[in-house]
């Protein structure tokens, strides 16, 4: 992984995972050609660009940071300035085949509301987030007694825009509460490699540093 750019509290980049294109490629693989996709928290538009290069995908984005939005628009992407907590309500029901929350959910004020909006707007949702149940997090908290700071999450607790961390288990519980269906639950280890999807939830929650979920809306 390349050297991380300096992070400041107002820096919108939520985790360093974004600079590792592998999780975005994996995420893009979950999306069928010809789909309409809304990328919520699309940062500099990397995922939308990947999707655009695949045939027939109509991609839109929402991004909080002005810098990110301006970069996206200059790349010709259909991206608007806004945030998941306040602006999803402006989209009509079932407007998209997929709503993507790539490294976004942990930075929202009301993750449950955002997920509900996601299911209202899209037939399916794709959510990726850093797994706070990863063994390294647990180890740091256990041995150091302080909030974990890692290569992927380099910002201290008081400055991070990530205000709602969760573990894979937490997320699964919330999805079940919302009545949505988990179609795929992919965990990536610290090397960015996929952990066997047949592995137990317990193992994926312990070994997965990143999680990518493909969900379909509650019936």
């Amino acid at each position: 992984m390349n050297a991380a750019p300096p992070m400041t509290p107002d820096d919108p980049i939520r985790t360093m995972a974004l600079s590792d294109r592998r999780d975005l490629q994996l995420l893009a693989d979950l999306i069928e050609p010809g789909s309409r996709v809304l990328d919520v928290g699309c940062s500099d538009g990397t995922l939308l660009k990947i999707l655009e290069s695949r045939h027939g995908i109509d991609g839109r984005g929402i991004e909080l940071s002005q810098r990110g939005v301006n970069e996206c628009v200059a790349k010709g992407l259909a991206v608007v300035q806004g945030d998941a907590d306040h602006d999803l309500i402006n989209y009509p029901d079932n407007a998209f085949d997929y709503v993507v929350l790539s490294q976004t959910i942990q930075a929202t004020y009301n993750p449950r509301f955002v997920l509900e909006q996601m299911f209202r707007i899209g037939a399916r949702g794709i959510v990726s987030f850093p797994n706070f149940g990863h063994w390294r997090m647990r180890w740091q908290l256990l041995t150091g007694g302080r909030m974990p700071v890692t290569e992927h999450l380099p910002v201290s607790w008081y400055a991070t825009p990530n205000i709602h961390f969760c573990t894979i288990r937490d997320f699964v519980a919330l999805v079940e509460e919302l009545g949505a269906t988990i179609e795929r639950a992919i965990a990536l280890n610290s090397k960015g490699n996929r952990i066997d999807e047949g592995a137990s939830l317990r193992r994926r929650n312990l070994m997965g540093e990143q999680a990518i979920f493909l969900l379909s809306k509650p019936r």
């Binding site: 839109r60 002005q66 939005v69 991206v79």
Partner: peptide
């Protein structure tokens, strides 16, 4: 922008 989103239009917005 909100109206265009609600109409399902393809929209970019820069401030």
């Amino acid at each position: 922008v909100h109206a265009l989103n609600a109409a399902g239009a393809r929209v970019s917005f820069v401030e």
